[in-house]
Computed example of a mutant assay.
Amino acid sequence: MKRYDLRHLKTEYEPRMKEILGEHKAGEVAIFLFEIGDFTPVQKSADLVKECGYELMNSLKFNEVDWTIVVKK
């Protein structure tokens, strides 16, 4: 299991998340933490996970501005 904090990227987290998913080992769980703002990034991240062939295992609000998703291939 690896955790990736993408909050510092603000709304520009998608290219980095896609890069990580492309390098991530099959069968290993990845946890992503990113900033959501208006909730649009939640659906975008779910779509990206599906596009990359991963299963979205969990998605939850971490605090007032951050979101966490758990994925596995």
Rank of each mutant, 00 (worst) to 15 (best):
G37K: 08
F62H: 11
F32Q: 01
K50Y: 06
H8W: 06
G37V: 01
D38K: 03
V71S: 04
M1K: 02
L60F: 15
N58M: 06
E51N: 03
G22N: 10
E64G: 08
C52I: 04
L48N: 01
E28G: 07
V49Y: 02
Y4H: 15
E28Q: 10
L6I: 11
L6S: 12
K50P: 03
L6T: 11
D66N: 15
E12T: 05
E35L: 10
K25E: 13
L33Y: 11
L48K: 01
E64I: 13
T40Q: 09
S45F: 00
R3T: 08
L21Q: 09
L60A: 14
Y13A: 08
V49C: 12
K25R: 10
D5F: 00
H8C: 11
M1S: 14
L48R: 02
L33P: 03
M17G: 06
H24I: 08
D38W: 03
T11N: 10
T40K: 14
R16K: 15
L56G: 10
F34I: 01
K2I: 10
I69A: 04
S45Q: 06
Q43A: 13
G53M: 03
E28D: 14
V70I: 12
S45E: 05
E55Q: 14
E35T: 14
K50W: 05
P15K: 01
K44G: 02
K25I: 09
I31K: 03
P41S: 05
L60I: 07
S45M: 13
L9R: 00
E35A: 11
V42T: 04
K44D: 06
G37D: 07
I36H: 15
K25L: 05
K72A: 02
